[in-house]
Amino acid sequence: MSEVVRAVGLVKGYGEGARRVEVLQGLDLVVARGEMLAVVGPSGVGKSTLLHLLGLLDRPEAGELHLFGRSVGSLSVRERARWRNEKIGFVFQFHALLPEFTLEENVAMPRLIAGESQQQALAAARQLLASLGLSERCRHFPDELSGGEQQRGAVARALVGGPELLLADEPTGNLDAAAAEALFELLREIHLSRGLSSVIVTHNEALAGRCDRVLRLGRAA
């Protein structure tokens, strides 16, 4: 199987009647295994919506979405949750680390949700954080970390479960230029070293240009 994502005629909008806003109108998309796809476009064109559909956080109103060779329309709520846990890694614009938990606990969370023991999950989290240069920050809480450290922590959390598909929603949007560059390089390295398929939503054209392919979304006429 060479395709990780195949979307045909995806439709998604918000609101009803006169207030209805069509965001995605019959989007077709294929992401090959090992491909790094950048999604760019102005605000409100449906970049995040596309990511939510691919991440099984939302359902399309029409169209067909296949992930890992299987149609997701028939997945139960439980199966969708399991796929999010095992096959998909998320990186949000704002780190989205849980404030009551230390960095290592945050990173271990997907493995804990998968049913792994706390000891094993924390060990895996520490190992991953060490590889990202955050071993000194394992026991720190999110509000004790810099913006770059928080985002690297979020990347670690997205990777700890060994996903096949990495989805990142403006991961550098909240960082300064240097930190954004460093984080993008980290994502690229991880993408290559782990053989991931990645979909990265960004406003940064320069960073998008360094991806394998760029998908430009525009406003519907």
């Binding site: 991440g55 956080l57 399991r82 796929w83 999010r84 998320f90 949000f92 989205a96 849980l98």
Partner: peptide, 16 residues
């Protein structure tokens, strides 16, 4: 609600 949404995105089931 934000924590719950993040946990849900990480794969925590509604029944959990």
């Amino acid at each position: 609600r934000a924590d719950v949404a993040i946990l849900s995105a990480l794969g925590l089931e509604p029944r959990a």
